[in-house]
């Protein structure tokens, strides 16, 4: 049979093409535009090549913000993922208690970001906040408005409080999808609780853990609102993460060129890390013996 080329088929692809163009490519291109040209006005622009990129990459403040950011995301993943799994394992399996626990656990997820910031700003205050006062009463000197380390720790604890429930809920759903027969089989084999976790639950959770890790990495790497409300990036620069650095650059100083260059770098870093996580977790499942 002769194959009949049908060019009208392209019309079917067109809507997707247009949507993607408007939603992703065109906005991204404006940023690219600003990153390689110095724009003074609509008809007054100079092509500067990679100058802005070089400028941004040599910025010491940015290096520090990036280090802070990587450290923050590292701790977020290191705490929230195991803690989320542990909570999911500890939750009741069925009955009204399970429903109640799920609702209670999901509560922090329903609170808007800036409200979370405000809650913790008050909660952790060393003079009137419940947590702040309690910690100080224990004899531990704690003041997040003055001590860089305390501020940093408060942001981390706040994020753990806010987002561990997401990991827990994802893992809980993943655990419920494992048929009972697997646990029975393990009991018959005489497998220990650790072996059940290591060889049945963890491999079966691989899919949801991948989603949890990616979501938590991306969100924590882009964190803005909560530290902005809590500390405004201070004291000093101790809680200035990449998003806030970018905002200061683009909105505060109105350096659109370097800000655009940095936006692209920021985007590429997130893309790179997501790709690494994805590849690593995918390959964990098919390790040869």
């Amino acid at each position: 049979m002769k194959k009949i080329p049908n060019n009208r088929a392209w019309f079917l692809v067109l809507p997707v093409f247009v949507t993607v163009a408007f939603s992703a490519i065109i906005p991204l291109m404006t940023v690219v535009n600003y990153s390689v040209q110095d724009i003074f006005g609509p008809y007054n622009r100079v092509f500067v090549g990679t100058e802005f990129f070089e400028m941004v990459l040599q910025d010491r403040d940015l290096h520090e913000a990036l280090q802070r950011q990587l450290l923050f995301s590292f701790w977020v993943l290191l705490i929230e993922v195991p803690l989320g799994i542990a909570i999911a394992l500890a939750l009741p399996v069925r009955g009204w208690l399970a429903s109640l626990c799920l609702v209670l656990i999901a509560l922090p997820l329903l609170i808007p970001w800036n409200v979370v910031g405000t809650i913790w700003q008050i909660f952790a205050r060393p003079d009137i906040g419940l947590a702040g006062v309690a910690v100080n009463r224990l004899g531990i000197h704690y003041n997040y408005t003055a001590e860089p380390f305390d501020a940093w720790l408060t942001v981390l604890v706040m994020d753990v409080w806010h987002w561990t429930p997401l990991v827990a809920l994802l893992c809980y759903a993943g655990l419920r999808a494992i048929p009972d027969a697997f646990y029975q089989a393990a009991r018959i084999d005489g497998a220990s609780a650790w072996a059940v976790f290591r060889y049945i639950q963890l491999p079966k959770l691989r899919g949801v853990l991948m989603i949890a890790v990616l979501l938590r990495f991306m969100d924590s790497f882009m964190i803005y609102t909560e530290p902005f409300v809590l500390t405004g990036g201070g004291p000093g620069n101790s809680t200035t993460f990449l998003s806030q650095f970018l905002t200061t650059l683009a909105v505060g100083r109105f350096d659109l060129g370097p800000a655009a260059a940095f936006s692209i770098i920021y985007f590429l870093i997130i893309l790179l890390f997501c790709w690494i996580f994805y590849t690593v977790i995918e390959n964990l499942g098919r390790a040869p013996r």
């Binding site: 048929p179 027969a181 029975q184 018959i188 013996r289």
Partner: peptide, 23 residues
């Protein structure tokens, strides 16, 4: 179950997901 010598096969296909067939 640990004190008895039993083996069981289920209607679901129950194998360790991260082990090869040999393992």
């Amino acid at each position: 179950v640990r004190g008895r010598s039993v083996a069981m096969v289920y209607q679901q296909f129950v194998n360790y997901p991260s082990f090869t067939v040999y393992e």
